[in-house]
Nucleic acid binder design. Sequence first.
DNA 1: CTAGAACCTCACATCGATGTCAGAGGCAAG
DNA 2: CTTGCCTCTGACATCGATGTGAGGTTCTAG
Lengths: 124, 124
Amino acid sequence: MRIGDLAARTGVSVRSLRYYEEQGLLTSSRSPSGQRHYTEDDIERVHFIQRLYAAGLSSRTIASVLPCVDAPSEENSDAALERLAQERDRLSAHIDELVRTRDALDRLTAIAREHRERMRATAA
Amino acid sequence: MRIGDLAARTGVSVRSLRYYEEQGLLTSSRSPSGQRHYTEDDIERVHFIQRLYAAGLSSRTIASVLPCVDAPSEENSDAALERLAQERDRLSAHIDELVRTRDALDRLTAIAREHRERMRATAA
DNA sequence: CTAGAACCTCACATCGATGTCAGAGGCAAG
DNA sequence: CTTGCCTCTGACATCGATGTGAGGTTCTAG
């Protein structure tokens, strides 16, 4: 699979895929002429990377965590494991905060709607 | 309260407070010499703005939603109300995605830990 | 009154992920 | 072989929130 195909099948731009490789998040085998080739598995990997981006992790952080995915048995994943737990906690805290914000928005909506109803009732 | 005080009491930089004003998110009364003055209420407002930023809203979006907070009775808050509901849904979807990502991280951690245990057992 | 701290405006810098363009080479179909 | 699309590298542009610095004014404590 060439880079354009991977881009099409993941919805991620060609530019970004090259960037992921540059950041050490994604590897490719090169054809003799230098073109990148990917496997089916890379589709899943790209999706996972996207998730981590969406979770607010930076390229650096993702890179530090990925060894855990690649080689769960390696010694070097020990640090990655800790990193992983740390990011999980960060994410969890962030989720909590977002939920609180959502609640705040809900309260706001409720107040505004109620106000509108009252206006309407008064007008009627 | 002057801008430095507000900054100290909200943990937001002076620079950012001026930026918020420039974006129409925050207003201040000016002393004759042009210095900004704030009320106690502005502390809460700044915190709320920060929350919305943390929820991924842009300055523009926040500005479009704030009328709802300021004047829940106004006609113009009708559009803002819709905007608010829309952003709430966006946020909710985002939260769901983050939760799924957290689950994925948890699964990863579990696998990695299990692997490590097995290694340790083998070594023992 | 004076020194230092805080404030003002304006403008340029930064960071990270991505867009975009240029110039060159690769590959498949006619 | 040629035409058209895909890919390569490398570089510069973008966006939004914030940092930073210059040059000047205002406030406050001694």
